[in-house]
Amino acid sequence: MTVPSRPASSVRLRLGEYSGASGSARPLDGAWWPRSYDLTAELPGLLAALPHRWGHITSVLVNGGMWSLSGDGMLIDDQWVHARGTDSARAGHTVCLLSPGQGRWDLLVVPPAATDAEAERLMDTATGGSGTDPAQS
């Protein structure tokens, strides 16, 4: 079964100005504010909202203690995406996205229960205050 994508315009995502630039000193490429910790429900919308230059994301690594995962991945828009959970402290509140031949991107995950003000502050911090909404690019 293919998981349908949420419209990119409804995804709360902000990318840093130099997101995905090789050699970037900034440890995060952006911030994502999902509506829940259900990866099956949230991941399709996130992937649909990412810039095309990031390529096809084939693997996702999340904090296994925070996200609900079923199986080792899911079919999104007719393409398999591997999903793994880790209990590593390094994973923390981030999601790691991998695209073979394109790169790796790390996004801060803003807690779904965050208020608008908290989410705005966290997203600004993650993007250095210069973030862009990919749906508006």
Results as ranks from 00 to 15, higher is better:
Ser24Met: 06
Pro34Ala: 11
Ile76Arg: 09
Pro112Trp: 05
Ser19Glu: 13
Glu42Asn: 04
Pro34Leu: 09
Gly131Trp: 07
Trp80Ile: 00
Ser70Arg: 15
Gly129Thr: 13
Gly103His: 10
Glu118Asp: 15
Gly64Ala: 11
Leu28Ile: 12
Leu69Asp: 13
Pro7Thr: 03
Gly30Met: 02
Gly101Val: 10
Ala117Asp: 15
Ala25Asp: 13
Val110Pro: 07
Leu39Gly: 01
Ala49Gln: 02
Arg84Ala: 14
Ala119Asn: 09
Val109Pro: 00
Ser9Asp: 14
Val62Ala: 03
Ser70Trp: 07
Ala48His: 03
Arg90Ala: 14
Asp29Pro: 03
Leu75Val: 05
Leu39Ser: 08
Ala126Trp: 02
Ser70Ala: 10
Ser9Phe: 13
Pro134Phe: 06
Gly73Ala: 06
Asp116Lys: 15
Val81Ser: 08
Glu42Thr: 04
Gly20Gln: 08
Asp78Ala: 15
Arg90Ile: 09
Gly23Met: 12
Pro7Met: 04
Trp32Cys: 01
Leu98Pro: 00
Pro100Leu: 06
Thr132Gln: 08
Arg104Pro: 00
Trp32Leu: 05
Ser19Asn: 11
Met123Gln: 09
Ser88Trp: 00
Gly101Ala: 09
Arg12Phe: 02
Trp54Asp: 01
Pro44Met: 08
Ala117Lys: 12
Arg121Leu: 12
Gln136Pro: 00
Gly71Thr: 04
Pro100Ile: 02
Trp54Val: 01
Gly92Tyr: 03
Leu107Pro: 06
Ser10Lys: 13
Ser68Arg: 15
Thr115Gly: 14
Ala31Ser: 12
Thr125His: 05
Pro7Cys: 06
Ser24Gly: 14
Gly64Trp: 01
Arg84Asp: 10
Met66Tyr: 00
Pro27Ile: 00
Met66Glu: 06
Pro111Asp: 11
Thr40Trp: 05
Leu13Gly: 03
Asp133Cys: 03
Ala119Thr: 10
Ala113Phe: 11
Arg53Cys: 01
